[in-house]
Nucleic acid binder design. Structure first.
Lengths: 414, 414
DNA sequence: TCGGGTTTGTTCGACCCTGCAACATAACTC
DNA sequence: GAGTTATGTTGCAGGGTCGAACAAACCCGA
């Protein structure tokens, strides 16, 4: 119950609703809660959803017959009154293949309803290897064994792909991925071909997925307004507004890395000057640490990590300077979005210890008192798994939103 | 049908739905379309909402008995087949009092369903007069005659207030209004007292209301992602995402004026340095035009306007410089929000002619190709009326969202 | 001028979903 | 072991929408 919300009136109100849509909505509501909050008793489900016990019984029965939930052996924490058996989401009832195409690695995982990770694989990926076709083939080599290992009763319902770049949701086209050297790559179609999937393949930006993962599986379950800052080579922001991902008109929203913060700063790969990521991105960190533009990539970061741990003052100063810029940009986002939580991921998660104080100071200096007073800045709790888990959440979403699958279209359906 | 939208699954899905809520939703859907799109035939309503003809007949009958719509004399543009009488929103069925507390003026208007303006009043307001109590009393002097002039069958359903400052939606508290010299002013309660209103009084920021007005009554009816830039003394941004106002956790979202764009720039009233509004706000314009900090207020802007019209090159250069900064900030917003339209209001609407080319150039240089390719930058079509009309839309919203009024609470209910 | 074609409004019965009330069940408590 | 309390179950009622059949009103062409 977001107190500050206007009476609904926009997009959601544009179309009429009928009885079967009510059913679908309520099935989705129950399944969503079980997926996100874990096992719940039926009576708790009733009070959380506002539906009657009889309706909950009916809904649970249908979800159970679909194989999506089961009533477990456990009982709710006991008190007076008849004990209530717990209802669980069945991970085997809906399984997805999650794929992450990162700068330095490729990852895949099989994940089931409720967030259960069946298995996962990760391989390092040299930054030079730039071909999308090779990457997809490698992902296939990683993913096929995982799918083959899945018992036949485990139902595969979708594939989710997270990619470091600007992705269009509607068809899985990667418009631009500078860190991979990709441009207009139809990664959705390629993954579909690789796995011969009848299931929908959904592609999204790593920052958007990090935000989704932190929203659903992060440290603050009740949060509805969240920003995830993905610091890799560049900076991306995944924004959750009122529990929904902010996508914008075409799904390109959240490109915070390319907002101007310093007109007298460094030229950015995007063509502009003084973008946030030129001041607070990986390159800035290495630059300030005296590693210049020559040293890049994983090895440089490892070196940085060691020197920071050893107390190298040049590195610590670099951290403070980058942290300050990072904080200033976060202040901007706080003023724009008024979030409850800002989660730092990727690079910033790794070096949070050294960045934290400068980040907080920078953000505090830029943010207005009103939005600042209630925001929490914190490192990612999912760490390196955020994007991969977000890809799983993305792929599970259609099944949760429509458990009976009546309204499902084949691929690229978002 | 926003193609790029994830399957709904967040906040809206958290709670169960019952039959009467379906009815309310469908009544709201029909009324909303009539309010926003104007008269429609019943068959058109059916095809737009996806509901059957019988249901539409029933819904229209109920709305008609509530006095909110009526079936007009006009007929739908003819073709083969039985002609369809038009359904109109009845302005008298739901009337609101809209109030605008601007820097240089106070305005009130009575506005009915469908956006019909019954009457309006505006008085100049010297910038020095800072007392909230005086302002509310002046608004009362303006508003009472308008309400008294309303025939008894005209149903007053609410009061909407637009204010130049940071307002909390939940209770109408103005947290901070630097341009009015206000701090923690309970303007909602004061307006309620002034009008002795049983109807809800809703308070919002002028930029948010400008955005709402441009969304519903602006030049591009089909748009769902819109940003309204309110340029007065400072800069505020009203953001519409997927047809809904972006409020953030506490309603403070959209403070774009206080995002850092130039660390070596001027000190801002907010305490930080180089905020967008120090580079592209009214003060910057006067500064660049050589009017320094001494000349402020309406007179200075009028002088500027005359000199610009006369071709004064110093003023035109100032416009270009401010326009460039304005454009850079707009580029930032385009990258962050991926909107379909950016509407320039207030100061920027007034001087659009002189700003336009620099704005476009600045925005183009900062925005990424993908979001830039589909965005339209344009001056407000509502001009000085934007905030006032937005306040009316805000106050009408609860009635539209729940035409029967079953779920209505007294005041400050949002 | 008239009849066929077409589209729309109306009516009525059926279906679906949820809520309610009454009852059954199973713990806890004293 | 009986009373208390909370939960699951069952059957029925109510509300909302849909679909089909019918009626109404216009256009068009002969």
């Amino acid at each position: 119950m977001p107190a500050s919300r206007l009476p609904v009136d926009g997009a959601a109100r544009r179309v009429g609703v009928t009885a079967d849509e009510v059913r679908r909505h309520n099935l989705a509501t129950v399944l969503h809660r079980l997926h996100r909050a874990g096992p719940l008793s039926r009576s708790r489900l009733a009070s959380l959803t506002g539906l009657s016990r009889s309706t909950i019984a009916d809904l649970v029965a249908e979800l159970s017959s679909l194989g999506l939930v089961e009533e477990g052996p456990g009982l709710a924490p006991s008190g007076p009154g008849r004990p209530s058996p717990m209802v669980y989401a069945r991970p085997e009832g809906a399984v997805v293949l999650a794929i992450e195409l990162a700068v330095d690695s490729l990852s895949v995982a099989t994940v089931g309803l409720g967030g259960h990770v069946f298995d996962r694989r990760r391989v390092a990926r040299p930054r030079e290897q730039a071909s999308p076709a090779e990457a997809v083939r490698d992902v296939g080599d990683l993913g096929h064994p995982l799918l083959d290992a899945l018992p036949p009763d485990h139902r595969l319902v979708g594939i989710g792909v997270g990619v470091v770049g600007i992705a269009r949701r509607s068809d899985g086209l990667v418009h631009l991925a500078p860190n991979l050297g990709w441009r207009d790559v139809p990664i959705g179609k390629m993954v579909t071909a690789e796995f011969g999937a009848e299931q929908p393949v959904m592609v999204a930006n790593e920052a958007d997925l990090g935000a989704l993962a932190e929203l659903r599986r992060g440290a603050r379950p009740g949060v509805h307004h969240l920003i995830y800052i993905a610091g890799e080579v560049g900076i991306g922001a995944g924004v959750i507004v009122d529990g929904e991902p902010l996508l914008g008109a075409a799904g390109y929203a959240g490109e915070a890395g390319h907002t101007l913060v310093n007109p007298t700063g460094w030229p950015c790969r995007c063509g502009a000057t003084g973008c946030w990521e030129t001041e607070a991105g990986e390159a800035a960190l290495l630059r300030h640490a005296g590693l210049g533009d020559t040293a890049t990539g994983l090895a440089a970061l490892d070196a940085l990590s060691e020197r920071a741990a050893a107390g190298d003052s040049a590195v610590l100063d670099a951290m403070a300077e980058v942290g300050r810029w990072l904080g200033l940009g976060i202040g901007n986002l706080v003023n724009l979005f008024n979030p409850e939580v800002v989660v730092l991921g990727g690079l910033y998660h790794r070096f949070y210890l050294y960045l934290a104080s400068a980040v907080l100071q920078g953000a505090r200096s830029q943010a207005l008192a009103a939005p600042w007073s209630r925001v929490v800045i914190m490192p990612s709790v999912l760490g390196a798994d955020a994007t991969l888990l977000g890809a799983a959440e993305l792929a599970l979403t259609p099944t949760i939103a429509d458990p009976t699958g009546a309204g499902r279209a084949p691929a690229f359906r978002t």
